[in-house]
Computed example of a mutant assay.
Amino acid sequence: MYISISAQTMGSNFSQSVSDFVEYLEKENQGLVLEEREHFFNQYSEEFSAKEVIKDIDGNTAKLKKKEPKFYSITVSPSQRELKQLQNSSKDLKHYTRELMKDYVTAFNREINGKPININDIKYYAKIEHTRQYKGTDKQVMENQPFASKILKLKQDIRKIELGTLEGSVKKNEQEIAKLERSAPYQLNGKRIVQGMNKGGNQSHIHIIVSRKDASNSVSLSPGSKYKASDVMIDGKLVKRGFDRDTFFSKAEQTFDKTFAYKRNYAESYKAKKAFVKNPNAYFSTLLGLPTHEKALAFNILGKAGVPIVDIPTNQVQLALKTIRTLKRGIDIAIKSGSIGI
């Protein structure tokens, strides 16, 4: 599972309205009849229109300056292995979102009217999406790019031949294009993977819009706080502040596993990600110490994430620093892709 929290920006400035983001999240509903559409939802209701979301979030920004985030975006991307555990993607992910947001509020070191904040103190709207497109930065698109460049050149040559400004054979160029299309290393359903193409398999994920201000529009709650937990004097009053992302990520994973009876492998756990970042040697030692079945599954998960299995150490002697350095980049990418940890 991969979870990200970010303040929405437009260039170097924070978005002053949630409208553009809401419009972006409505893209999958285009062309669908009402019964087939995914609606915005929150802790209390199943169906909110885009207009209602925009009005509510944009109207909950009291005393926030232009240089301060008005809202935050939380994206939750379960792996395909995790999604297989669900019985009904939309229904199950909505239920999980509501439990997840309870974890979100407990990660704040804040009080409202002398009480720790609870789910009723925040204002959020969420939406389930079922497709993802390949981006220009994806490995598959990047490694297919040399083929794409040659194909483009050949197509340009065909156009010139047809216009009479270049000598050559259109048929020969078309045959070369077909050969390049087949030779590209990454294919999906018999077609070369290109930017903008829908990814295969179950790609269901969650987008959550959270207002920076609490539900009363009086207290600022920032998950982007650099403080995990601290107390500070403001106007002569001791005020709690901070948001503990580590706590949130850990609880989010635990909640998923408990809710769906999911048996998480070490290689896909948040604990593993932290171990790899802080102490790669300890990470591989733990990996090698797993029971045979669990270790085989871990290697399978890493392999599907694009990590070169042939380079993974298979015994303690191979746990050399050079080997770890070689693998670090690949596993970093796998972690960020959502296949490992959060």
Rank of each mutant, 00 (worst) to 15 (best):
I209E: 06
A272H: 02
I74F: 03
I333S: 10
S73M: 11
N217Q: 05
P223L: 12
P291Y: 02
G59M: 11
N113H: 06
K172C: 02
G224Q: 15
T286S: 14
V307W: 00
Y44L: 12
A252K: 01
L34N: 15
L180S: 06
G196L: 12
E162T: 05
F248L: 10
I206T: 01
N217L: 12
I342T: 07
T286W: 04
K199W: 02
G59N: 09
L152Q: 15
V105P: 00
A107H: 03
L221P: 03
G11I: 15
P116F: 10
K66V: 05
L180F: 11
F260P: 00
Y124S: 01
E181S: 04
V307N: 11
L288G: 03
D257I: 11
R159D: 15
I128W: 01
R132I: 02
P116N: 09
E176G: 04
V170A: 09
M10Q: 12
V307Q: 08
E176I: 09
H207V: 05
P69V: 09
D157K: 13
Q156G: 00
S89G: 09
D332N: 14
D20F: 06
K240P: 04
T131S: 15
N189Y: 10
S211Q: 03
L34I: 14
R329G: 14
G190K: 09
I208R: 07
L86E: 04
G114S: 09
Y96Q: 02
N173H: 13
K226I: 07
M142S: 09
T137W: 06
A126I: 08
V317R: 14
K63F: 11
F276L: 15
K251D: 05
I158F: 02
K150L: 13
E143R: 08
I122N: 00
I57N: 03
L166A: 06
G200R: 13
E36I: 09
N217W: 06
A215G: 07
N88W: 02
H95D: 06
L288Q: 07
I301D: 05
V33T: 10
E129G: 04
I119K: 05
I206W: 02
A267V: 07
A184E: 03
I206V: 08
P280E: 08
D332C: 07
S49G: 13
K304N: 12
G242Q: 06
E174T: 12
Q318M: 15
Q140R: 08
I208N: 08
H207N: 02
E52C: 05
K160P: 01
L302H: 10
K155P: 01
A107R: 06
K153F: 06
F260V: 03
G136Q: 09
E35V: 12
K27Y: 13
H207G: 03
K304S: 10
Q16G: 07
S90Q: 13
I57F: 03
Q43Y: 10
A282F: 10
K63H: 07
K94P: 02
A62D: 04
K51T: 11
K135F: 11
I312T: 03
K66P: 02
K91I: 13
L163A: 15
E35D: 12
Q8M: 15
T259F: 11
I333R: 15
Y186A: 07
I193P: 00
K65F: 11
P313Q: 14
S250M: 13
V310R: 14
R98T: 00
S269H: 05
